[in-house]
Amino acid sequence: MSPYVFTLLIFNLGLGTTMTFASSHWLLAWMGLEINTLAIIPLMTRQHHPRAVEATTKYFLTQATAAALILFASTSNAWLTGEWAINQMSHPLATSTIMLALALKLGLAPVHFWMPEVIQGLDLTTGLVLSTWQKLAPFALLLQVSSTVNPLILTLIGLLSTLIGGWGGLNQTQLRKILAYSSIAHLGWMVLIIQFSPPLATLSLLIYIIMTTSAFLTFKLTSSTTMNALATSWTKSPMMTSLATLILLSLAGLPPLTGFMPKWLILQELVKQDLPMLAFFAAMTALLSLYFYLRLCYTVALTSSPNTITMLTPWRLNPTQTSPLNPLTTMLTLALLPLTPAILALVIY
């Protein structure tokens, strides 16, 4: 791909998301989403591998359907109430349809099936873009409509997402699919809390983006896409491999690490809203996710896999797939928890 075209596409990727952020009219928001989808498509097929093309086709079909559904629901809302503004939706049918369409765009539970397959077909960098930047525009819309959507639908989608995200990842050996299921589970937590505290949902998204960025970039550093490859990644970069364990535990949400913060605050908020059973079930589904993260940690850190002498040589070579972002996000992933009071003071209260 020519660097000019690459720059153009990256620029348009930003343009689409920014348009969706800035718009208050559904038509403009829809246009932003369309520009976003159009710009990511050639970036996804950059390798022109059959798997990449297949993933792109599936991504295109789901995103185009979701965008059309969003515009249809907002048009219905305009027909019934005469209102086009995003945060003024009032008809229950339209808001429910929009919620479903946004769930399809984000890859939330009843309509999540495209997500693992699409991530599996892409290289790690594009997968990273897909699971972070591409979530921003639909999430901004979700934040604006969340106060009008039926709370039961939001709760069901959120709980189902955390459950499916944990359950689906159990049987996977492919790292990208595991990361996709982890994305589904994390977004489920955000949807659970979005009706009670939108700033908390945004904070969770931010922290999820930081954590998943460091996970993707670390896997990219060691060029590992399966659990097998992870088992010998200590020969390539021993330091990052030991940190990868901690990154995975942070994604799982264990206490001394950053990933604990959103789970902690969300559970606290749910209990504060007098929904202890919901908090209980959400915490239980997080255990399912914890299982596959722990299995990855076990492969990375606690096993010494049988290997031949040639597999041990990569330590002689300098890693080529480095990224300047990786040290920063890794540090944030591991050590942001002590800043929780400051973040709370700045963001939530």
Partner: peptide, 24 residues
Amino acid sequence: LLLAFSACEASAGLALLVATARTH
């Protein structure tokens, strides 16, 4: 505007059709 954007979408879809026909 909707017509213009749907034309863009349709042409991207047809290009993907060509790409999948090539790879699959």
